[in-house]
Design a protein around this nucleic acid. Structure first.
Length: 801
RNA sequence: GCGGAUGUGGCGGAAUGGUAGACGCAGCAGACUCAAAAUCUGCCGGGGGCGACUCCGUGAGGGUUCGAGUCCCUCUAUCCGCACCA
């Protein structure tokens, strides 16, 4: 009899062995077929690992382990995305240096990850806060700066009143700071920006060439928000100046009955002298400025506005004079900050027109009465539109744009929702921006040989009340000589956002110790692109977009060998508490992975998280489900007592063995881990029914299970005395001919309803099958047979009237 | 409002257009045990029938098909993004 299954002993033992033997180190043999699997590196928070982390890590661990056994040179790395606010806030509160906080958190995370038996290549571990790493983050920034893609500008930023830090749009959720929940207000500051908008088209178009799950592509496209339309110049009545608007519906130009400018539009000041109700307009502008973006959209339904008295525009196609309004439903940050209003065919304009009694002119026929209901559909026929009359939407749009361009009063134009990336943070715990400001020479980049610009030690990490970074107080560090003219100059004191380090980390894994380049061209050429990248849906519009942008830039610079960083992107579902709600301390439904490992073992946790349900859907935690998986592993453990001698697979299980090899192999690749495990459970049930297992069956089975439960299977391999290590074993292959049973269950249906199931030889021909089926259901064959359908190997359907 | 996803037993979930409910959990029964736990074996959607059987059943309603959980249309509920982007 075997000893009892004790994961507490065998799991640490094998974890140590794998490390000692460098079992999962990727080799630099660039002639072997490669497989680069990537999971998002974690932010090492003070809370430690969450049960959500192992789900994606186990998934790609399974694929990586399988691919290694299939002969691939696999790179499956791990590292730490360690700059960031929570660490800094913790450091401030507890008066510990963020470097030490990070060190402690990383140590804890690493221990936890190792206790789960992931086959990460720990020789390639990286840390974004390591100067040898952020050396190259800064280097990329210099490249961006020198290419004109990094610039500094005064702009209103989202200012968190609690963190005292500027936030990217993406970090503001429902008007509050994503991290701390405090209100976010607008504040004008000089900020470093990255021109991600320069790559907006490529970021959309190149999605066609990559294998991302559809919802990721859709989200990225929506976030970038490309729209194609035209700019149209409206002359201001009695002036030479023009008011330019952006529209996606130039076809409706004949239906324009008024115009609207954003309250912040510069024309309000420019034409102050002409505007008779200037005070009223200014009052409206102040009112709008007081509202946060959130409040503006909260009040979206109820339109407000003021008509400008003394300034009107001329519709360039009708020649009619029309009023200009200001309203906060028009945003200064999109298009030109002004719109032409077509109330008949735009719901916002329609609401506004109804409220302020502006005329509504139908120019697209096909809807109901436009005085009663807006008609926005891009179908129907143009009316009341002179030379466009009778055309459909597409023709009218094209014709109008041609007309505008010919007359020089408009032009075809694309617009994007995507904005440039606000790249500075007034914080300590981030990469210093390697720029020096000289009054004479302007912004001067550091020389490459002066990198890394190391984050200096400061006494206090508190951001200052005036919104400067803590680095600003360090005069010794700040005041330097200009590298250009030698005169007095100051260092940039803002640091980079957390997204910086994660925008290129997958490149560093290919050659993590390189001191001369971010990675060698050879390593990049061999390993890139990442073959399979799995991560959370929450990173679809931020990290994924930012890193694609940087990669495309590096590609244009000739530094990386491919235009896209990731060939394939998948996403995992969240793990919810047992009550079906998101796990959180306040809800009291948090499960700690350490506890699960202690009580049941890492293999049980891994098996459970893969068995819990479809990988891409959210799943609720169940303690009973965990126990069930432990029970399964116990049954696997006891197979060792049922081993019998003999060559090959037993006759009764041969088909099932081949079927299982086939199913497990393909299900792992398709991320259908739950059904792969179900198939292995079913096979174990069959071994128990047989009461024995042959040596070949045992060996094959533990190889199949190994990627899911690596420790128990490695131990069983060792106990059974198989040669070498299981992690080095060869993945089994199935024989398609042997996945088919000699006899089948032939289903006999009448009018699609099953009436009998008959045993029949697998290779039965159509006529015999139909004859057999008819015999089985003869009692029911009372009507006229119209049709007989035979699905080979499956069923006969007799259609009867 | 727009976009995306989901809806199948008591529960988690399976089903290339071909026997709906694999596998697991919970439950029930039996074996083992002085007993319990653990383990092993069997049963396990609902109605009707002693029974061989039979009818109903995949959120609702239509449709396509010899045949629909699966494909098409309409609706509904829940979840997740985005939100005046002209």
């Amino acid at each position: 009899m075997s000893q009892s299954y004790n994961p507490k002993v065998i799991e640490p033992k094998w974890q140590k062995t794998w490390l000692d033997e460098k079992a999962f180190a990727a080799t630099n043999d660039f002639t072997k077929p490669k497989f680069y699997a990537l999971v998002e590196f974690p932010y090492p928070s003070g809370q430690g690992l969450h049960v959500g982390h192992p789900r994606p890590y186990t998934a790609l661990d399974i694929v990586s382990r399988k691919r290694r056994m299939q002969g691939y040179n696999v790179l499956y790395p791990m590292g730490w995305d360690a700059f960031g606010l929570p660490t800094e806030n913790f450091a401030i509160k507890n008066k510990i240096h963020p470097r030490l906080v990070t060190k402690n958190n990383v140590a804890r995370f690493k221990e936890q990850l190792q206790s789960l038996g992931f086959s990460f290549d720990w020789d390639r571990e990286i840390n974004t806060t390591d100067p040898n790493y952020y050396h190259w983050t800064q280097w990329i920034f210099l490249k961006l700066f020198n290419a004109g893609l990094a610039y500094k500008t005064e702009m209103p930023i989202n200012w968190c009143t609690s963190c005292k830090v500027g936030l990217a749009n993406e970090e503001v959720v429902n008007g509050v700071c994503e991290r701390c929940g405090a209100p976010v207000v607008r504040k004008v500051k000089s900020q470093w920006m990255l021109k991600i908008t320069e790559y907006a088209d490529k970021l959309i178009d190149d999605l066609d060439g990559v294998d991302y799950i559809e919802r990721v592509k859709v989200s990225q496209k929506n976030w970038i928000g490309r729209s194609e339309g035209a700019e149209v110049d409206f002359t201001l009545a009695g002036k030479d100046e023009k008011l330019t608007v952006y529209t996606t519906r130039p076809d409706t130009l004949f239906g324009v009955t008024y115009m609207v400018m954003s309250p912040e539009h510069p024309y309000i000041d420019k034409f102050k002298a002409d505007i008779k109700n200037y005070d009223e307009i200014m009052a409206y502008r102040d009112e709008a400025a007081k509202k946060s973006d959130f409040e503006r959209s909260e009040l979206a339904k109820d339109k407000t506005g003021v008509c400008i008295d003394g300034l009107t525009a001329v519709n360039p196609v009708t020649g009619k004079e029309i009023p200009i309004w200001i309203s906060d439903y028009v945003l200064m940050t999109y298009g030109t900050g002004a719109i032409m209003a077509v109330p008949a065919h735009d719901s916002r304009d329609w609401e506004f027109a109804k409220k302020f009694n502006m005329p509504i002119i139908e120019v697209v026929a096909g809807g109901r009465d436009v005085q009663e209901e807006v008609f926005e559909a891009k179908t129907g026929t143009m009316v009341n539109s002179d030379f466009l009359n009778g055309m459909d939407f597409a023709t009218a749009k094209r014709t109008m744009i041609d007309y505008l361009e010919e007359k020089g009063i408009g032009r075809s134009k694309k617009n994007f929702k995507l904005r440039d990336w606000v790249f500075s943070r007034q914080r300590y715990w981030g990469e210093p921006i390697p720029i020096i400001h000289c009054d004479k020479c302007g912004y001067v980049p550091l020389k490459e040989e002066d990198l890394p610009l190391v984050l200096p030690e400061v006494e206090s990490y508190m951001p200052t009340d005036n919104g400067e970074s803590p680095l600003a107080a360090m005069e010794d560090w700040v005041n330097v000589k200009c590298p250009c003219c030698g005169g007095p100059a100051k260092r940039e004191t803002d640091t980079m956002p957390q997204w910086a380090g994660s925008s290129w980390y997958f490149l560093r894994y290919t050659d993590p110790d390189n001191d001369n380049a971010l990675a060698s061209p050879e390593a990049l050429k061999y390993w890139m692109p990442v073959d399979w990248y799995n991560g959370g849906m929450e990173h679809t519009t931020l990290h994924l977009l930012y890193s694609r942008f940087w990669h495309k830039f590096l590609y244009d610079q000739g530094i990386v060998p491919c235009a896209e960083p990731y060939s394939k992107r998948t996403s995992h579902g969240m793990i919810l508490g047992s009550n079906g709600e998101k796990m959180s301390k306040s809800r009291g439904n948090v499960v700690n992975p350490d506890d699960v490992v202690n009580e049941f073992g890492a293999d049980t946790l891994r098996t459970y998280e893969m068995f819990i349900g479809a990988f891409d859907l959210a799943a609720s935690w169940s303690e009973e489900g965990v126990k069930g998986c432990r029970r399964f592993l116990e049954r696997v453990w006891k197979l060792q007592d049922m081993i019998v001698d003999g060559e090959g697979f037993s006759e009764e299980l041969e088909v099932k063995m081949h079927q299982t090899i086939k199913k497990v192999s393909s299900d792992f690749e398709a991320m259908k881990f739950n059904t792969a495990i179900a198939a292995m459970m079913s096979l174990v049930n069959d071994f128990y029914k047989a009461g024995r297992i042959t040596k070949a069956e045992f060996k094959t089975f533990i190889i199949l299970l190994n990627p899911v439960a690596p420790h128990i299977t490695e131990e069983l391999w060792n106990i059974a005395g198989f040669e070498g290590r299981l992690y080095n074993a060869q993945w089994p292959e199935h024989d398609d001919d042997k996945t088919v049973e000699a006899t089948i269950k032939l289903v006999a249906q009448i009018n699609g309803k099953t009436r009998a199931v008959i045993d029949a030889p697998a290779d039965i021909d159509k006529d015999s099958a139909i004859a057999l089926a008819k015999e089985a259901v003869s009692a029911r064959l009372t009507g006229t047979i119209i049709k007989e359908i035979y699905v080979p190997g499956k069923l006969v359907n007799i259609v009867m009237k």
